[in-house]
């Protein structure tokens, strides 16, 4: 077999693999969409679960997930952005940056169930928050912190040093430069990281199992010390341990589709923000 034929064979294999893998991934999405689309209607999105979670809707779980998104982002976003600023604008290239970066990467690599254990030990028991939105938000916040730090750092790295030099040359101090020049330019990319974090937070189950998630709680939370239902945990519950698993299948498909839709929308938003906001402050 000559080398041209070998190449043709190898490339055909790669194309086939590409089609196969993409096909598998798409068929999963297609399956969820096909089965879930018929379930989603206004009632599904606005009513509480009924009849042992085999009918009604998922409104409390949606509200719970929104609370958790708001709480965890409120905790992680400011800290993450400040951390990114400190690492890139203050530490520059010192050896300590390497240590911090290794730590950040490792925190990002810790399994989510370990965050669940830690959140339970620290926030639920040691701080006495109990099973609450507060404990869950802290746990999820720590989970997405590395993602926010990394995107902030990357966003700052992409800004040419001429911007900073120009600002200093005009007599601005370091903080002024950060708040007036660097941050505004970096904002689109930081926002992209924020949106991706929202997608991540909305789908995590393991960290909220023991810190906030309620099996069934039709009333809405009244404060940050309440337990809530959450979409991913709700899907787990009705898929594996509901009172009538077969009857609650449609509900499970609908919930899965809602989760997928959230991730879709967040990715779409992230792309849009990168393109739209990026145009206004074009740099080269």
């Amino acid at each position: 077999m000559n080398r041209k034929m070998k190449q043709a064979l190898a490339f055909a294999t790669f194309r086939l693999l590409g089609v196969l893998v993409v096909g598998v991934l798409f068929s999963i999405l297609g399956f969820i969409i096909y089965n879930g689309a018929g379930v989603i209607n206004w009632k599904f999105l606005s009513a509480s679960p009924e009849e042992g979670m085999s009918a009604g809707g998922i409104f409390p779980a949606i509200v719970g997930t929104l609370w958790l998104i708001a709480g965890s982002i409120a905790i992680a976003f400011p800290i993450g952005v400040m951390s990114g600023i400190y690492i890139h604008e203050y530490l520059g290239n010192r050896w300590i940056v390497k240590v911090i970066r290794v730590m950040t990467n490792n925190l990002g690599g810790i399994p989510s169930i370990v965050f669940g254990l830690f959140g339970m030990a620290l926030f639920v028991h040691a701080f006495g928050f109990g099973d609450s939105i507060l404990a869950g938000s802290f746990t999820l916040g720590l989970l997405v912190l590395p993602l926010i730090i990394r995107t902030t750092e990357e966003a700052l790295k992409a800004i040419p040093d001429t911007y900073r030099a120009g600002s200093y040359a005009l007599g601005a101090g370091k903080l002024q430069t950060i708040f007036r020049v660097t941050l505004p330019v970096a904002l689109p990319n930081i926002i992209t990281g924020l949106i991706l974090s929202i997608g991540r937070v909305s789908g995590e189950t393991a960290p909220i199992l023991f810190t906030v998630a309620a099996y069934f709680l039709p009333r809405l939370p009244s404060g940050i010390f309440d337990q809530v239902m959450a979409l991913p945990y709700h899907l787990y519950v009705i898929a594996t341990s509901g009172t009538d698993i077969e009857a609650s299948r449609p509900m499970a498909y609908g919930t899965a589709l809602v989760l997928v839709m959230i991730v879709f929308m967040m990715n779409l938003l992230a792309t849009v923000s990168r393109l739209r906001l990026g145009k206004k402050t074009k740099m080269d």
Binding site: G203, P232, L235, Y236, A239, A256, V263
Partner: peptide, 11 residues
């Protein structure tokens, strides 16, 4: 990569 693991588990 962003699809929640519980959705993959459900599938």
């Amino acid at each position: 990569a962003g699809i929640p693991s519980v959705v993959y588990g459900f599938f």
